[in-house]
Design a protein around this nucleic acid. Structure first.
Lengths: 129, 129
DNA sequence: CTGGATCCATGTTGATACTG
DNA sequence: CAGTATCAACATGGATCCAG
């Protein structure tokens, strides 16, 4: 990532390392469920089981852990409504929304370069030896 | 990813599923080494052990596997020079370069939202109970 | 309804040694 | 130089059961 983020620029609040953060973000959007969940939050807040249904075959454990991940990076918020039965709403933050936009540009990239990718994969499989 | 890629649009060459491809790309850039390696290829071709040194504590096994991954998605090329000792050069393709650009926008995002992320992480750790 | 806790199968990574 | 092969450590995800 040289040249992308000035590692020594920010004066005092020198947290771990910007590069680590970048990697952790990439790892997060690279995991199995995060992006799908974020995408389901694009139109507004969703409740836990609502997401569970929308994201189809995700397990509770994974949904919980995915949401905790989003929350812990400030990409989504968790709002508990003290009703009975309990209701919990999740919503994207502005940060999350901004990141989702970037992720969608990856989707666009994929769409644009479909041929390249499949061609490359096919070549490695069996170019007729 | 609803709305990003029209799942049914492309007529005949219906490979697996664009969504799968998107996920596989996200997973690739989300892994530990891919982006770092790509970034080292940004200024031109590099040889195997050259990359090995540049990417510091990467193991041969991981470098090989990372490069194979890039190659298999058409993000980088592998050129063998039949000299002795053998020389192998890796270079980004145009696709790879385009993807790297997008990834760098994630880096920019991270830089912009540093505060949000760290604040969220700190909040989850110990908001003074 | 929301989610914590546990167990377990599987995949991924690193260390190390060996090869054309 | 540029890999491959093997094995062990670890992380990840799913299934299941329990609880506020």
């Amino acid at each position: 990532m040289t040249g992308v983020v000035d590692r020594e620029a920010r004066s005092t609040a020198e947290q771990p390392d910007p590069c680590d953060l970048i990697r952790s973000v990439l790892a997060r959007v690279g995991d199995k469920w995060t992006v799908v969940v974020m995408d389901e939050l694009r139109d507004g807040p969703r409740r836990f089981n609502e997401l569970r249904r929308l994201v189809s075959p995700i397990t509770q454990r994974m949904l919980t852990s995915t949401l905790r991940g989003l929350e812990s990076d400030g990409l989504a918020t968790r709002t508990v409504h003290p009703t009975v039965p309990p209701q919990v709403e999740y919503a994207l933050t502005d940060s999350g929304r901004a990141l989702l936009t970037i992720v969608k540009s990856v989707a666009t990239w994929a769409d644009t370069h479909l041929d390249t990718v499949y061609a490359a994969r096919a070549t490695l499989k069996g170019p007729k030896s």
